[in-house]
Simulated scan of single mutants.
Amino acid sequence: MQEYTQEFAENLYFTPDETDLSLGLWLMRTGRNIAKPNYNAGPRTLGHYSMHFIRAGSVLFQYDDQTIRLEKGDVFCLFPHLSYHYRPADFAVPLEMTWVGFAGSQAAGLLSLVGIHPGVPYATSVLSTEVELTLQHFWSAGALRTGKPRLKFLSLLYQLFDQLDPRKDNHAPQRDTQKEWIRKSLDYMNTHYSENIDVNHIAKLVGIHRTYFSKVFTEHLGITPLKYLLKLKMNKAMQLLKETPLTVTEIALSLSYSDTASFSRSFSLYFGNPPTHYRKQTSPSKK
Rank of each mutant, 00 (worst) to 15 (best):
E3R: 09
E3L: 10
Y4I: 02
Y4A: 05
E7K: 10
F8W: 12
A9W: 10
N11R: 13
N11Q: 12
F14C: 06
P16M: 06
E18C: 05
D20N: 11
L23M: 11
G24N: 08
W26N: 09
P37F: 04
N38Q: 13
N40C: 11
A41K: 12
P43V: 07
T45G: 00
G47E: 15
H52V: 15
F53P: 01
G57F: 06
V59M: 02
V59T: 09
Y63T: 10
D64A: 11
D64K: 09
D64N: 10
D65R: 11
T67E: 12
R69C: 10
L70G: 06
G73S: 03
V75E: 03
V75M: 01
L78M: 14
L78S: 04
P80D: 08
H81Q: 14
L82N: 05
Y86I: 03
Y86N: 03
A89K: 00
A89H: 07
D90A: 08
F91C: 07
L95R: 06
M97H: 00
T98R: 14
S105P: 04
Q106A: 13
Q106I: 15
G109L: 12
P118C: 03
T124D: 07
T124K: 13
S128M: 07
E130C: 00
L133D: 06
T134G: 03
L135Y: 06
L135R: 02
S140H: 10
T146E: 15
G147I: 02
K148A: 09
P149M: 03
K152Q: 14
L154W: 05
Q159L: 09
L160T: 07
F161E: 04
F161L: 13
D162L: 11
D169H: 13
D169S: 14
A172Y: 15
R175L: 15
T177C: 02
T177Y: 08
T177P: 03
Q178C: 04
I182T: 13
I182E: 09
I182L: 13
R183H: 08
Y188W: 13
M189R: 05
T191S: 09
T191W: 05
H192L: 09
I197D: 00
I197E: 03
D198W: 09
D198G: 04
D198Q: 06
N200I: 09
I202G: 01
I202W: 05
I208M: 14
R210T: 13
T211S: 11
Y212C: 09
K215Q: 13
T218G: 12
T218W: 07
L221A: 10
P225R: 02
P225N: 04
Y228K: 03
L241A: 00
E243M: 12
E243L: 14
L246V: 00
A252P: 03
A252L: 03
L253K: 01
S254T: 02
Y257C: 02
Y257W: 02
S258A: 04
D259Q: 08
A261G: 03
S262L: 00
S266C: 08
G272H: 06
N273K: 12
N273E: 15
P275Y: 00
T276F: 11
Y278V: 08
Y278C: 10
P284Y: 13
S285Q: 14
K287C: 11
